[in-house]
Design a protein around this nucleic acid. Structure first.
Length: 485
DNA sequence: TTTTGAGTTGTTCGA
DNA sequence: GTCGAACAACTCAAA
């Protein structure tokens, strides 16, 4: 794996969750040094512990790296792929290439922070690590309450963000990247085995997503042109394309939040007044992303442990069968099953439905939120340590700024309210498609002749409800009572 | 230090 | 069918 010819005086840009050329401050800084740049990505499975990328994330990573390779090649550059403990790999590569500067975009997850430390330690006296922000709008330690402490509540956090100076303008993508006389050797991406085989379950993902910087830009363009104006209402309707669907692109850094912010701001400035609410609401969601990173930065244990420690005593009713029914979309509640099947098929789930299925797992089935978090981690293309942990803890009621305990989503009402015409359920639960709207979200209440006419046989073609809503709600409230006592 | 107002995303019940 | 109140009490953040 060592290079044949020594490459001297070069700069290494270590790509991580910044798989983009545009608005990549670290990459631009590497280029600005005027020396050959060696773009590197390292697959470090040894160091990532329990939160190594799941199956859907690995699929995305493969395609995003392919896209990045192509973009770099168009500039006369390459992407060098290596495997192994990242700090060791970089330091040996730096020695081989005579690189005295390493640039990288700051990461906020415990593993990413650890890598930055290890890298500096490994390179003491031989190379300098230059770190740049860019994957958040605000650095997590730059936002603090008047007492200097990190925020635990979103609204004051976001207000404090809005008082900060506006995010600087995005940096244009580089037009050229100086290349070394000889490239160090690297792996072939195909050998990394990131794609599923036997079976290849990625067809639904490929139909929905275009990983990479161009795909990210196209999603943002579509959102701004077609969906932003109606965002305040349509973002809650899973049957419509009312949200941006940028989450996986943002997670892998194929687009920067600053780019999103400035594009929205530009529209708000242009037509002030009209459609402001949509733009503001969308930026607020980007703010939630910063807030989750802020929480993870200050409380790095949140992926594993409840933020509110008293929840360690919660009387969970762990059931492998119930968990499996939830995972497979066979709970008998149409909106829940639709969501779980959308996730399984496309690697993504609408945000409104994420809340419904999460509430159902934690409150109706009393299954620990960590089990849901782990399932999402493996199946979501946008699986993100901070967002996933903060989201699940919010629903479970054990997080910072969490939902009140008595807020138990009613999956029937939620379905009727947010999928009134049944587009979403009919798409993902086709065996119920012929039911009239009146019974679509509560098929067990349909008269036998209605079921027969729709070709539905409960317990056969579609399951009976795994649990009765009213009883489950009462049980959840009791469990919370007992925890407090 | 004390006080005060507020807190993403909801449901149920009874008038 | 619609509407307002209750569901608890607590913690946070700012004044």
């Amino acid at each position: 794996m060592r290079s044949g010819a020594a490459v001297t005086g070069s700069v290494i840009h270590l790509f991580r969750q910044d798989l983009r050329l545009a608005d990549n401050a670290a990459l631009s800084a590497a280029i600005a040094l005027g020396r050959p740049v060696i773009p590197v990505y390292i697959l470090d499975q040894e160091s990532s512990g329990p939160w190594a990328p799941g199956g859907a994330s690995r699929w995305w990573l493969h395609h995003s790296l392919r896209s990045l390779e192509t973009s770099l090649a168009a500039l006369g550059s390459r992407l060098i792929l290596r495997r192994g403990p990242a700090a060791e790999v970089v330091s040996s590569l730096a020695a081989d290439c005579g690189a005295h500067t390493i640039t990288l975009t700051r990461g906020y997850e415990p593993d990413a922070v650890q890598l930055e430390q290890d890298l500096r330690a490994a390179l003491v006296g031989s190379a300098e690590v230059k770190r740049f922000g860019g994957n958040l709008l605000q650095e997590p330690e730059s936002i603090a309450s008047l007492s200097g402490r990190p925020y635990k509540v979103f609204t004051p956090f976001y207000k404090a963000c809005l008082k900060q100076p506006a995010p600087r303008a995005p940096i244009a993508p580089p037009k050229a990247i100086a290349h070394p006389k000889a490239w160090p050797k690297g792996d072939d991406l195909a050998d990394w085995g990131l794609l599923p085989r036997a079976p290849d379950w990625s067809g639904g993902l490929a139909a929905e997503w275009t990983p990479g910087e161009a795909g990210a830009a196209a999603r943002l363009d579509r959102f701004l042109a077609e969906a932003m104006a109606a965002y305040p209402t349509d973002r809650d309707l899973p049957g419509r394309l009312g949200t941006s669907r940028l989450s996986p692109h943002l997670h892998f850094g194929e687009i920067s939040p600053r780019t999103c912010w400035h594009r929205v701001q530009h529209i708000l400035d242009r037509d002030s007044g009209k459609g402001d609410a949509g733009g503001q609401a969308f930026l607020r969601q980007i703010g939630w992303r910063d807030f989750s990173a802020h929480l993870l930065h200050h409380w790095p244990q949140i992926p594993d442990s409840p933020f509110k420690p008293e929840f360690a005593a919660f009387p969970w009713a762990d059931s492998a069968e119930a968990l499996a029914a939830w995972q497979r979309g066979k709970t008998g509640y149409p909106i829940v099953d639709a969501g779980m099947r959308e996730l399984w098929h496309s690697g993504w789930m609408h945000n409104r439905v994420r809340m419904i299925v999460a509430s159902f797992l934690v409150k109706h089935l009393l299954i620990p939120w960590q089990a849901g978090e782990a399932w999402f981690w493996d199946t979501l293309v946008d699986a993100d340590l901070a967002n996933n942990a903060a989201g699940w803890q919010w629903v479970a009621g054990c997080g910072a700024d969490a939902a009140p305990y008595f807020r138990i989503f009613n999956p029937i009402l939620q379905g009727e309210k947010f999928d009134p015409a049944g587009d979403y359920v009919r798409r993902w639960v086709p065996e119920l498609a012929a039911l009239p709207d009146l019974y679509l979200h509560r098929p067990w209440e349909a008269p036998p002749e209605v079921l027969a006419q729709a070709g539905v046989t409960l317990g056969d073609s579609y399951p009976h409800p795994i649990i009765d809503h009213k009883a489950a709600r009462a049980r959840a409230l009791m469990a919370l009572q007992s925890m407090k006592a």
